[in-house]
């Protein structure tokens, strides 16, 4: 387990290092001077010089990279050019919308996908199976932002059950805030639940055809007992992988849904930063999201070892 964790940790560190270089270079290879790009061609020379100083553009490539990475390691993500506030502060505020939204969506997706996938697999070939697979086929194909718009028409404009967008703030009450995250969470969850249900079903079908399940049945367990006691646990590895990938997707993928519902989360922030060419924000938030994705994948790999004892003792 220790060796497994250490190798994973090493690959986590390498991934992060390479990612930071790639992101840094991507912003570095900008055609022209970043300061001019951010301020526009008509900017005054002294404003440009001030921004260059602030961006640290006068140092060498190497020292700029080190100070950027060093800053992030100590929690200093730079200062937004357009808002003139520390990026760390802005991220901190907006994370309180994006993170709960991602968790909410992931919870919904898992709660829908597990029963649907297990049900379809246990009744393979039946009308229930065909029905579940048909619905998930639609769920995978539907663009989630369009689904979100349709839900706004039905539940916000016509039925008036939810508001069409915006976020009241957590200080206005937990349930009110959760309510305003409900439609966005459903929109985010639908395609993910469809994918997850399909993975759950096919993974379970694979496991159900294995010898140890037949042995369990021969031993006298009912089909249902064999499924719950033996097959399900073994079918979980691919499902866990997908859940891990989905969490990072939901965190990053919220950008479009946050736009549909005018939620002031990370996604909207990065999008506004792109429009305003606020590259300090873009660079740091992209790195932060990549970090989140890589870290989640790391946790998923560690959790394999908990599910599958073989990995704990080296393959």
């Amino acid at each position: 387990m220790l060796r497994y964790t250490l190798t994973r940790l090493l690959s986590l560190a390498v991934s992060l290092a390479v990612a930071s270089v790639v992101i840094f270079m991507a912003v570095e290879i900008l055609p022209g001077d970043p300061a001019t790009l951010m301020l526009g061609v008509n900017a005054q020379e002294d404003t440009l010089a001030a921004l260059r100083e602030q961006l640290g553009l006068n140092g060498s490539l190497w020292s700029r990279y080190l100070s950027w990475v060093g800053g992030m390691l100590t929690g200093d993500f730079g200062t937004s050019y357009t808002y003139r506030t520390p990026v760390a502060e802005m991220v901190g505020e907006r994370l309180w919308i994006s993170l709960p939204l991602a968790i909410y969506a992931l919870t919904l997706s898992t709660l829908i996908a597990f029963p649907a996938g297990i049900w379809a697999a246990s009744k393979r070939g039946s009308a229930a199976d065909v029905g579940v697979m048909g619905v998930t086929q639609l769920g995978v194909a539907i663009p989630n932002f369009w689904f979100a718009m349709l839900m706004v028409v039905v539940f916000a404009i016509n039925l008036r059950w939810f508001s069409a967008g915006g976020f009241p703030g957590w200080d206005k009450g937990f349930w009110l805030s959760m309510k305003s995250l409900t439609l966005p969470a459903i929109a985010l969850a639908l395609p993910q639940a469809s994918i997850l249900a399909r993975v759950m079903r096919s993974s379970l079908l694979d496991t159900l055809s294995e010898d140890f399940v037949r042995t369990a049945r021969a031993k006298g367990l009912s089909k249902r007992q064999a499924l719950w006691r033996h097959a399900l646990r073994n079918a979980l590895i691919p499902v866990l992988t997908i859940i891990g990938l989905q969490f990072s997707f939901l965190l990053a993928g919220g950008i479009i849904i946050e736009n549909v519902f005018y939620l002031p989360g990370l996604g909207r922030m990065i999008f506004q930063a792109v429009s305003a060419r606020d590259l300090i924000v873009v660079e740091s938030v992209v790195m932060l999201l990549v970090f989140a994705v890589i870290a989640v994948n790391f946790l998923v790999e560690i959790s394999y070892a908990l599910v599958d004892p073989r990995l704990r003792h080296g393959r």
Partner: peptide, 19 residues
Amino acid sequence: NDLVFAFPSLVIAILITAI
């Protein structure tokens, strides 16, 4: 390959278009 997979694709698409 693993590294490219680790990047959130939408965010990178945004980075590319931002640049």
